Computed example of a mutant assay.
Amino acid sequence: MLTEPLYSSQVFTAPFIVAANVGLFYALNRPPLVPDAFLSLNVQLARDWWQKQNRSYFFWEFGKPPEVVIEIVSNTEGNERGSKFSTYAAMRVPFYAIYDPLQQLKGPVLEIFELSGLDYVSRTSTWLDSVGIGLTLWQGEFEGREDTWLRWCDREGQVVPSGAERAAQEQVRAEQERARADALAERLRQLGIDPNEL
């Protein structure tokens, strides 16, 4: 839900990378952090991205940190509010989101921080203006499971649809269009006009 919709929706015109569970290497001889998801704008994906050696994000190769990192809390041992918080700030990542669906950290379900100086400050808005996208909580079904999901959204809070959701929306639209056409044809027949002769 945090990767495929951005690739299939063409939200961004410039090249970007959105990935899950990929190591962020920010300094030599330092261990990487592996966020649950990240978004980096104006960078090119390697042609052979699926090769193991390319499944890492080296700051010195891409020339910058990602714009957004997202951590999903699954237990209290992840240090999302501790060492990860300070390390992402040291990496100069502009936005850091913590999604804590079970509220294990005893805070809000979704909290977004913006880098200010050398540290993060909590934001009330989930719209990331300088990135041109937002985050929202969405109640719905994904992969056969009804739940609350973290999703990308537009400025109005509408979720960025996945490819499957867009296909389903297009099918509904096509069926409505066909029903309108059938109703119009029936109305023309009632008026004594053969719609096939128009």
Rank of each mutant, 00 (worst) to 15 (best):
L2C: 09
E4R: 04
E4V: 06
E4Q: 11
P5T: 03
Y7R: 00
Y7N: 06
S9K: 01
Q10W: 14
Q10P: 00
V11I: 07
P15C: 00
N21K: 14
A27D: 13
A27W: 05
L28N: 13
L28P: 10
N29S: 15
N29G: 13
R30T: 14
P32F: 06
A37T: 12
L39Y: 01
L41C: 04
L45T: 12
L45G: 04
L45P: 04
L45A: 07
R47M: 14
D48H: 06
Q51K: 10
K52V: 14
K52D: 15
Q53R: 14
N54M: 07
N54A: 05
Y57C: 05
F58W: 15
F59C: 11
W60H: 14
E61I: 11
G63T: 03
P66T: 10
P66G: 02
V68G: 02
I70W: 10
I72G: 09
V73L: 03
S74N: 11
S74T: 14
E77W: 10
G78Q: 15
G78P: 00
N79Q: 10
N79R: 04
S83G: 01
S83D: 10
K84A: 08
F85A: 07
S86T: 09
Y88S: 03
Y88V: 10
A90Y: 09
M91Q: 13
M91F: 15
R92D: 12
V93S: 09
V93T: 11
P94G: 10
P94F: 01
F95L: 10
Y96P: 08
A97C: 13
A97N: 11
A97F: 11
I98L: 07
Q103W: 06
L105V: 01
G107R: 04
G107E: 07
G107C: 04
P108T: 13
P108Y: 09
V109Q: 14
V109G: 08
E111N: 02
E111Y: 03
E111C: 03
E111M: 01
E111A: 08
F113K: 03
S116A: 10
S116Y: 03
S116Q: 13
G117N: 01
D119Q: 06
D119H: 04
S122R: 13
R123M: 15
T124V: 12
S125F: 06
S125W: 05
T126K: 08
T126G: 07
W127P: 01
D129C: 02
G134D: 08
G134L: 05
W138C: 05
F142W: 06
R145E: 02
R145S: 00
T148D: 10
L150G: 13
W152Y: 13
D154Q: 08
R155C: 09
E156R: 11
Q158C: 10
V159G: 01
S162L: 05
G163I: 02
A164R: 09
E165D: 04
R166K: 12
A167D: 12
A167C: 06
A168H: 05
Q169F: 08
E170H: 02
E170N: 10
V172D: 07
V172H: 09
A179Y: 03
A181V: 13
L184R: 15
L184F: 15
L188K: 04
L188I: 08
R189Q: 13
L191A: 11
G192W: 01
G192N: 05
I193H: 06
D194E: 14
P195T: 06
N196L: 14
